[in-house]
Design a binder for these strands. Structure first.
Lengths: 155, 155
DNA sequence: TAATATGTTCAGTCAAGACTGAACATATTA
DNA sequence: TAATATGTTCAGTCTTGACTGAACATATTA
């Protein structure tokens, strides 16, 4: 592999780690994802630890996390003891779920306040309604994106 | 103020602090915003510190932050030494900017990788294109939301 | 002038959570 | 059996960034 290419790969993997971090995920989870996006095909547990230069403990917890998010899948092979990992077919939509759940939580916080505060605090109620609408619209637009983004046909 | 109402207000303020935190903002910034959403009208620097039970240092840095984000505005009054703060007219759209800038950064990370990696790594390029499209669509849908969400007429 | 009021800055403390590495459990191989 | 391979767990370390409170600068009042 060319020197430059190798560097570009490393850079992408690291930067996706930072993207993940900004999204509230562990940096290593982002690195694993980046690595699999570039290199595709199943990689073993040990290979991931080795290439990414992180502890096996971190590989364990972060592969479990990405698995639970539906972003990667763990596969095993007859006669092999190691676990292998690869990206799932349409993983990115799963990534929005985290965002959606945060937005929904915010929407709920506002809704609770609207319900619990007196109706005759009309200024407060107005501002709460605006804030609530804002979060609702955000939820809706990501929702739309997810449904429109799925593969045209399942089969 | 009724006991229950008071409690509901406190709860909202605290929970908006957590929402802010999940969004990468300091908790206190969220509390200030929540307090102003409920109580409206200009509140002084000292009043904020007192009601929210946080240090003046934190009020200083967090009001500055919210000001720079365009979420609140600082107002002064002739003959008064204190600064006052209130929500800006349509503040919530400003809140999406942070999200948008994160998404754009992610989009850029992917675009850089697409450019720097060899074209004949077609599997990697395909997966990168998918990931890039994903971020692009997310940016687009929040972008649309912001523009459609503005007040129908300015003036 | 001294005393007070006000906002900012910054060094230090604290908390949350990521990461490591060792201990462990289990399974396989020699 | 012992030795090795593998993934998980968890106690401890380390990093990051929020928060405090004191020192400061400036302006006002007595």
């Amino acid at each position: 592999m060319k020197q430059n290419t190798e560097h570009a790969v490393e850079e992408f993997v690291e930067r996706l780690g930072l993207v993940a971090q900004a999204d509230g995920l562990p940096r290593i989870a982002g690195r694993i994802m980046g690595f699999l996006v570039i290199h595709g095909g199943p990689y073993s547990f040990s290979e991931l630890a080795e290439h990414l230069k992180v502890s096996r403990g971190s590989i364990s917890s972060n592969t479990r996390l990405l698995e639970s998010l539906g972003v990667i899948e763990r596969i095993t092979r007859p006669g092999e003891r190691q676990d292998y990992f690869q990206m799932r077919p349409h993983p990115y939509m799963e990534l929005v779920r985290g965002l959606q759940s945060r937005l929904n939580k915010a929407r709920q916080v506002v809704a609770d306040a609207q319900r619990k505060l007196p109706e005759d605090w009309s200024d407060a109620q107005t501002r709460l309604a605006e804030l609530g609408d804002f979060y609702s619209r955000l939820v809706d637009s990501t929702e739309m994106m997810v449904s429109s983004g799925k593969p045209a046909k399942f089969k």
